[in-house]
């Protein structure tokens, strides 16, 4: 059965007819072509499908598309500014070599965007906890933590200057 939902995705209003059984991850991938939303387990274990829903990081594989009615969704496709410049988190991931195979990357970036948006400093241990819902087999998380830390610092510095 289909249901019409209205939502904002990466800043754009969308009206979609979605299967009431469909996950948000599938709808974003198939109906909107937002393939950065990765499916690694489809049961909320790996974090690869993380998107921001009204600013909060959520596993979109566990979230029914119909629940997104009236909400704002953000994926990495929506992070770049109009002039093409990267979000500080994206920049930091490149500079710190936090990207390897890249499959978990979009999901972790979205969690990091939420963290950076909180407008406060985090200890390394706090960041480890915040990111522990994401599995990565390539990096050992070391450079990812460095990248998130850098993005947090830069954003705070910019806010204070």
């Amino acid at each position: 059965m289909l249901q019409i939902i209205h939502l904002t995705v990466n800043g754009r209003a969308q009206e979609l007819a979605v299967d009431i059984r469909a996950s948000l991850a599938d709808v974003l991938r198939r109906q909107l072509g937002l393939t950065s939303v990765k499916k690694g387990c489809e049961v909320g274990e790996c974090g690869a499908c993380t998107v921001l829903i009204d600013g909060r990081a959520v596993d979109s594989c566990l979230y029914l598309a119909v629940w997104a009615d009236g909400r704002e969704i953000l994926t990495v496709e929506g992070l770049r500014a109009g002039d093409g410049s990267l979000h500080p988190v994206q920049r930091a991931f490149i500079e710190k070599a936090a990207v390897q195979c890249g499959f978990c990357t979009p999901g972790i970036i979205m969690s990091a965007v939420e963290i950076v948006g909180a407008g406060r400093r985090y200890t390394r241990e706090e960041l480890r906890r915040e990111l522990s819902g994401h599995l990565c087999r390539c990096t050992g998380y070391e450079n990812i933590l460095d990248a998130v830390q850098q993005a947090v610092e830069q954003t705070l510095q910019q806010a204070s200057s």
Binding site: V76, R80, L86, Q90, F93, I94, V99, G102, T105
Partner: peptide
């Protein structure tokens, strides 16, 4: 060289 594509989707 693939980092940009991987952080932008």
């Amino acid at each position: 060289v693939d980092a940009l594509d991987k952080v932008t989707g």
